[in-house]
Amino acid sequence: MTTHNTYSQEQDSLVLIKTEYGNIKIKLYGDTPGHRDNFLKLVREGFYKDQIFHRVIKNFMIQGGDPKSLASADSTASDNNMADYTIPAEIVFPKHFNKRGALAAARTGNEVNPEKASSASQFYIVVGKSYSEKEINKIETERIERRTQSLYNDLQSENKAKIKEYYSSGDRDGLAAFRQGLYAQAVETAKTDSTLVFTPEQRLAYTKEGGAMHLDNEYTVFGEVIEGIDAVMKIQSVKTDKKDRPETDIKMDIVVISQ
């Protein structure tokens, strides 16, 4: 099954998630139109009526939209895409990231889903944790170092013949200089990768409100909570079983406010 974009322009839309813990007003981003339009379609069809938040992890996120989770408390369907279609990834990073209150699409793992296609119906809302500036600086440095090493390894593989020549000739100094040049090239390339460096907006959000930065650039973030974050915080604190399912079902209904 494929989805059809109802709106050609990049306009935001508003929906309201109704729960017993309060209402959560969500803005759906216009620059992720495939996810926006699919979500609005499901809402208009009444898909989310009496659906539940089947996976809740304190200081991480709340997840819902899996119809199989209604069948049994022992369901493990939270890891499965229950619809007969997926949504192509629309990862707009670093503009949209996993700050507290971010709405994102769940998906299956990279090993079976390297394209990072989204579940047709399952979504999560981020709670996450707050980070200090020191922690963010450390993470940023580690990101750049990992990327640099990966690039350097790739460059060495691409230049195997040249490296072999240096070994064969016994020119150790030449080999060292050549490798230094490759590493310098890797460093410069890594520095230009904007996905590795925290933007001012990310720094502010992750230090002041919190989030789940390890999910960044991996899942499609297609909206955010603009009112009702207190309801999200209440839901993330409920008692859950060892499979992270709330002991008492938390039902939802979702309505469109503007589209």
Results as ranks from 00 to 15, higher is better:
Arg143Trp: 05
Lys129Ser: 12
Ile144Phe: 06
Ser194His: 12
Ile235Leu: 12
Ala161Val: 12
Leu155Val: 06
Ile235Asp: 02
Thr141Pro: 00
Ser118Phe: 02
Lys160Pro: 00
Pro200Thr: 04
Gly181Asp: 06
Val197Phe: 02
Met213Ser: 04
Leu182Arg: 08
Ser118Gln: 03
Thr220Pro: 01
Asn217Ala: 10
Asp249Arg: 15
Ala120Asn: 07
Val127Pro: 00
Asp241Pro: 03
Arg143Cys: 03
Tyr152His: 05
Ala184Asn: 15
Lys234Ser: 04
Gly170His: 10
Lys251Leu: 09
Val127Phe: 01
Pro246Met: 10
Gln180Ser: 11
Lys239Asn: 15
Ala231Arg: 10
Val197Arg: 15
Ala161Asn: 13
Gln149Gly: 03
Ile139Asn: 05
Asp244Pro: 02
Glu140Trp: 09
Met213Thr: 04
Glu224Trp: 08
Ser194Phe: 07
Tyr219Ser: 02
Tyr152Met: 02
Ala205Asp: 10
Ser118Pro: 01
Pro200Gly: 05
Thr220Tyr: 07
Ala177Leu: 12
Ser169Phe: 03
Arg143Ser: 05
Asp244His: 05
Pro200Met: 05
Ala117Asn: 15
Asp154Leu: 11
Arg203Leu: 13
Glu111Ala: 12
Asp249Ala: 14
Ile144Thr: 10
Ser150Glu: 11
Thr220Arg: 01
Met233Val: 08
Gln149Lys: 14
Leu182Glu: 04
Lys138Leu: 11
Asp216Pro: 00
Tyr152Gln: 01
Thr189Tyr: 09
Leu155Pro: 00
Gly223Ala: 09
Lys234Trp: 02
Asn217Glu: 10
Asp230Pro: 08
Leu175Ser: 02
Lys160Arg: 13
Ala176Gln: 14
Asp249Ile: 06
Ser118Asn: 11
Thr189Trp: 06
Tyr166Lys: 08
Val127Arg: 02
Val225Trp: 05
Gly210Asp: 12
Lys234Asp: 01
Arg146Phe: 13
Glu145Cys: 01
Ala117Ile: 00
Ala184Gly: 05
Asn153Ser: 15
Glu209Cys: 02
Leu182Gln: 05
Val112Met: 08
Arg146Leu: 12
Ala176Pro: 00
Asn137Arg: 14
Ile226Glu: 14
Val187Arg: 08
Val197Tyr: 04
Gly211Lys: 03
Glu218Asn: 13
Ile229Tyr: 06
Val238Phe: 09
Gly174Glu: 10
Ile136Trp: 09
Pro200Tyr: 07
Gln180Cys: 00
Ser169His: 08
Tyr124Val: 02
Ser132Val: 08
Asp244Arg: 00
Ile250Val: 13
Thr141Arg: 15
Ile235Val: 13
Glu135Pro: 00
Ile144Cys: 06
Pro246Ser: 10
Gln149Glu: 15
Tyr167Glu: 15
Glu227Val: 11
Leu155Ile: 07
Ser121Tyr: 10
Ala177Gly: 04
Gly174Tyr: 09
Asp173Glu: 14
Val127Ile: 13
Glu140Thr: 11
Asp241Glu: 05
Leu155Thr: 03
Lys160Tyr: 06
Lys116Phe: 11
Ser121Ala: 13
Met233Asp: 15
Glu111Phe: 09
Glu209Asn: 12
Met233Glu: 15
Asn159Ile: 06
Gln185Leu: 07
Glu188Thr: 11
Glu188Trp: 03
Thr199Asn: 08
Ile229Arg: 05
Ala177Val: 10
Glu135Tyr: 04
Asp216Val: 01
Tyr124Trp: 08
Ala231Asn: 10
Ile144Ala: 09
Ile139Pro: 00
Ser169Lys: 15
Glu142Tyr: 09
Gly181Phe: 04
Phe198Ala: 06
Pro114Trp: 06
Gln122Thr: 02
Gln185Lys: 12
Glu247Trp: 00
